[in-house]
Design a protein around this nucleic acid. Structure first.
Lengths: 189, 189, 189, 189
DNA sequence: GATGAATGAGAATTCATTCAT
DNA sequence: CATGAATGAATTCTCATTCAT
């Protein structure tokens, strides 16, 4: 794979540059030229790898989503709640590890169409839903816990992210443990 | 002498129109002319009441914040956890009651304007922090609950909102009870 | 003359206000609203007395021209050069006495059509031409002085005005005597 | 690699086009699009070379000033009055040779931009002042000639220009000789 | 007559996208 | 492949002018 790899690598470079700029000034205020400058290439060259400005945001999100996926799957063994705890903490760690990509989520949420956010979150809720089922089977849950709690847990994670993005006073890593505890104890029998 | 206009009322009308359009197409895709049309006035007239396009977003948020504030204060009597429950449910109800304004939050988060979001959320966390203190005094909390949990609770609320905005499949009202339960049981002794 | 006088007086008031503003910020940067504010009336009221923004500049110039005319005629008795000296000095005094109107000349020169500047200056040159003829008859002039010198003398006056308007370091009153001397000695036999 | 453009040359082309349009319709009535059309480029391309519409006026004036400077310095040998005569005539010739740039002076005078007109005229007066000093040393001047006469001479030149710009009936070249004579004989002993 | 809210034509400016080199 | 000059559609914002009260 000779050319192909180069192409993908270059796309990745540009996307990383774009994400850095997005995180710094927001998508709305980011010009193609800013991204090009950050990537160290010429403005026109961005179009060799991306179809449009919007494609940069889309691409950034997809890259983020891909890097994120493993958190849902590498949960190891244990009870449902143990594995849920790992999922929550793993997600927070992942977000904290790449704050720029996390910041871009705000722009993604505010943006319109071609991003299948619903699918991503659906998948997320489904993964948590499975853990809840397992935990229920393990007899760990109190009564009345259902798939809506999956949405609440996903929400709690994202919401903590919002807090830290909007108020620098709040640190995502600091919130990890309280968040995990709330999610786990909040449903435990 | 031309009719004396109620500036504040007119500003409110325009802001409401703006919020409807923002909710429909997002702030980024909204043109001043769209807002004017929605408000039934001429493009230039918007500028009689707002300095700039950004001022519409800022104004919308501030109006939202003002309408929201009471949720933090009208919590009635009861134990800390009872009052916390009311706060969480009240916030969700308020958000569910004005979904357009809620949608604008996404644009506000993504924007850079001179909006003191940090102050708003700080206030929110402080209000919850006080309830946690009361609950602790009432002996309702398990050990290790501190002000970080206030951030987590605020986050959980906002995060649920994000879920419902990003995925129409999820309904905010449906999440209200699970969210309240998670927040309350997640910290109860 | 009941209404008529009021109307003319009001026009004069507005014109004076306009000239003050023009002198302060230049015609290009002056808004109808600025003039109204300076005159202490409402924006719309300006249109009760003037047809358009341009009409203010036109009106200002015409008022200036009217106030100026007498300088050409009240020259008293004496030789041609004596009367020329009075004309030059009288013009400078008149300009120095109403610096705001003088400043507006710059905008008038730069403006386009409906102002018959050519006629004004033609009249000016004709008046000076007559004095030159008289002076020639009086035997005061050296050979070769003709109507072109009238243009040069008018130019010298206006040019001194430009100097003082463009460079505050130069005072019109200071230039009066040297200017008069140059104009008179420059053509004397 | 796109052709490397000579920025300065291109700026000059645009400036020349701008000056033609300014001379034709005046700065106030000139739109960026007019300039672009005259230069044979697209509206937006003007902004690749100039920051704003005002910058065109500023740039035009500076170009004019640069092209003009040499008149002050290449005066050759001779007595003070001989050299003064050359200066005056040289200036008139220069103005007559580029009537469009001369017309723009009217707009420059009326404008407020960050143009250091005062400095330019100061330099002009200083140059003439030096010639007056020399002429005085050469014993060519009558008593009472000082630096104020330098201002008057500069004024006379500019004023003649105004005459010709404001009244097409008057030709700058026709005024050259009378102007020179007035300036020289007006101060000669 | 006076007012000032409303209008909307018009202009400056920006910037994503294209394409000749 | 890369570049960056050029384009022009799109948008914000201004302000002269109108007119209902």
């Amino acid at each position: 794979m000779p050319r192909k790899v180069d192409r993908v690598a270059r796309q990745g470079d540009i996307l990383d540059a774009a994400v850095r700029v997005f995180a710094r000034k927001g998508f709305a205020a980011t010009r193609i030229e800013d991204v090009a400058a950050e990537a160290g290439i010429a403005k026109g060259s961005v179009y060799l790898y991306f179809d449009s400005r919007d494609a940069l945001l889309t691409g950034a999100f997809e890259l983020y989503a891909r890097r994120t996926e493993h958190v849902l799957h590498d949960l190891g063994d244990g009870t449902g709640l143990q594995r849920l705890e790992r999922l929550v903490r793993g997600t927070v760690d992942m977000l904290a590890a790449q704050p720029d990509y996390a910041r871009v989520l705000l722009d993604v949420w505010a943006s319109k169409p071609p991003l299948d956010l619903a699918a991503l979150y659906h998948e997320y809720r489904a993964a948590i839903g499975k853990l809840l089922t397992q935990a229920a089977a393990d007899g760990e849950l109190r009564a009345g816990i259902d798939e809506r709690h999956a949405a609440v847990i996903v929400g709690a994670i994202e919401g903590c992210l919002v807090q830290t993005l909007v108020d620098p006073e709040v640190s995502l890593r600091d919130l990890a443990t309280p968040l995990v505890r709330l999610c786990v104890e909040g449903i435990r029998k």
